[in-house]
């Protein structure tokens, strides 16, 4: 039963990674850039919910909706102000800018909220699920996280395959110039991608802070890096890859914590990443990317 319990909470942690990884993978697939500030958007989402729910005492639902709205605006603004002017610049310039944006968000949070850890009020208040006559308890946060991840995956897949904007995203991800020749507004498509990724980051923030209820300006950075790892692991640019990468990573992390060493779990996660990349440089589901001249 112990194993099953660790496994399920691993899946849940992985589901959060997967939701965050979607933001990395979609932005990479469509805008061809690594948005290293993505993890910090999660933190901003967490603080918005914290302010609304814990400080102002409003219902969690209001907190989540506001956080999603705030992060969407934040993501689109970051893209417009920091990344769009660099659309034709070298990828290194964009990468450095993204790291700069990441530090900017952390330091603004540091100014506003200070460096002390805040106690996050769990937003999921349903009873836990007790199975097998009390031998296996699954927390309601775990269940809500997994369900949320499944719903997001289905919705996103439908959005990409069934809507005009989704088709535009596919076209832009394949060939930005050719997409523009079809009449697709590439800038708008990239902005929508950032909007979706950032909205998902807010949801991930809510779930993450419910599972690990302490909030600091650096809360987003480690899960951000892990989710980035998950995206690379699954094959960056691939939506199902983000799901697989996230879940596998979450399970590996939790099982290593349980059976090997909680201090070494991060090292093990990244070691597995290195191994996968040595064997399959494009990740599990990634396809070879032909650099276009």
């Amino acid at each position: 039963m112990g194993f099953l319990s660790y496994f399920i909470s691993g899946v849940s942690l992985g589901a959060v990674y997967a939701i965050i990884a979607l933001g990395y993978t979609m932005v990479y697939g469509i805008a061809r850039m690594l948005n290293f500030a993505h993890g910090d958007v999660i933190m901003v989402g967490g603080f918005v919910i914290f302010t609304i729910v814990s400080t102002l005492g409003m219902p969690p639902f209001v907190g989540i909706v506001t956080a999603v709205a705030a992060c969407t605006v934040l993501g689109v603004t970051i893209e417009r102000v920091a990344y769009r002017p660099l659309r034709e610049a070298s990828s290194l310039a964009v990468l450095i800018t993204a790291i700069g944006v990441s530090y900017l968000l952390q330091n603004i949070a540091l100014l506003v909220f200070g460096s002390n850890s805040r106690q996050f009020t769990p937003i999921v208040t349903l009873p836990n699920l007790v199975l097998a006559g009390g031998k296996l308890t699954i927390s309601s946060t775990t269940i809500v996280t997994i369900i949320t991840c499944i719903v997001i995956m289905i919705a996103l897949t439908l959005f990409i395959n069934k809507t005009r904007m989704g088709q535009a995203m596919l076209a832009v991800s394949e060939d930005r110039g050719a997409a523009s020749l079809m009449g697709i507004d590439v800038n708008k498509t990239i902005a929508v991608t950032f909007a979706i990724g950032s909205a998902l980051a807010a949801i991930a923030g809510a779930l993450l802070c419910s599972a690990y209820p302490s909030l600091t300006p650096y809360t987003g950075s480690m899960p951000g890096i892990k989710a980035f790892t998950a995206a690379v692991f699954g094959g960056i640019g691939s939506v199902p890859g983000a799901l697989i990468g996230g879940i596998v990573l979450g399970i590996i992390e939790n099982l290593s914590k349980a059976y090997i060493s909680s201090q070494l779990s991060d090292a093990i996660v990244f070691a597995v990443l290195i191994l996968v990349l040595l064997i399959r440089p494009t990740g599990i589901l990634g396809r070879k990317i032909n650099e276009k001249v």
């Binding site: 596919l170 076209a171 394949e174 110039g177 050719a178 079809m182 009449g183 697709i184 590439v186």
Partner: peptide, 28 residues
């Protein structure tokens, strides 16, 4: 004018090297 606006104005461009969307079907 941004290029994408020209399509609805009636200009189509068959680019050098064809640049079809390789991972989409012919119909798509």
């Amino acid at each position: 004018m941004p290029g994408y606006k020209l399509v609805s104005m009636g200009i189509a461009h068959v680019p050098e090297g064809r640049r079809v969307f390789a991972e989409m079907t012919v119909l798509q």
